[in-house]
């Protein structure tokens, strides 16, 4: 269920890219590096044109959880926190376990977050303390 949600969320997020890929198939000119015709110019880079298939081949394994580092609890934190606010808010913090517990309580008591069952709560707090805990 959670997986399905993530796949769907990713599908939404990647819509513009998928649409763009569709447009790409309309024509296949040979890519050649060109210098910008504007005042911003740079030497053409040597190398291959970007692989046009990469964007299409992305699936949930490439999902980056909005930059949350991988680890136990990553998915739970993503799902429970990013429903309401962006994860940039989480990623700015460096807090003690006690403060993270307080914040989760506040989210549930005052901010309309669904309360987590004890194992999931533990998973979420552990993840937050591990990755966004007090710097040593």
């Amino acid at each position: 269920m959670m997986r399905a949600f993530l796949v769907f969320a990713f599908f939404l997020a990647s819509l513009p890219m998928l649409m763009a890929c569709e447009q790409k198939q309309a024509a296949e000119p040979k890519p050649t590096p060109e210098t910008a015709v504007s005042d911003i110019s740079a030497e053409p880079q040597a190398g291959e044109a970007p692989d046009e298939e990469t964007a299409l081949s992305e699936d949930e394994d490439d999902f980056d959880y909005d930059g949350l580092p991988s680890g136990e609890g990553q998915e739970e934190v993503f799902v429970n926190c990013s429903g309401c606010h962006s994860l940039r808010l989480v990623q700015q913090q460096g807090l003690s376990r006690h403060r993270w517990e307080e914040i989760l309580d506040w989210m549930v008591e005052e901010q309309g977050m669904a309360s987590l069952d004890p194992p999931e709560h533990e998973l979420v707090v552990n993840y937050l303390v591990t990755h966004y805990g007090l710097p040593e």
């Binding site: 763009a20 890929c21 447009q23 790409k24 000119p29 890519p31 050649t32 590096p33 060109e34 210098t35 910008a36 504007s38 911003i40 110019s41 740079a42 030497e43 053409p44 880079q45 044109a49 970007p50």
Partner: peptide, 9 residues
């Protein structure tokens, strides 16, 4: 600048 701008969809 974008060297491959002619190919950019």
């Amino acid at each position: 600048a974008i060297p491959f701008h002619r190919s950019m969809p």
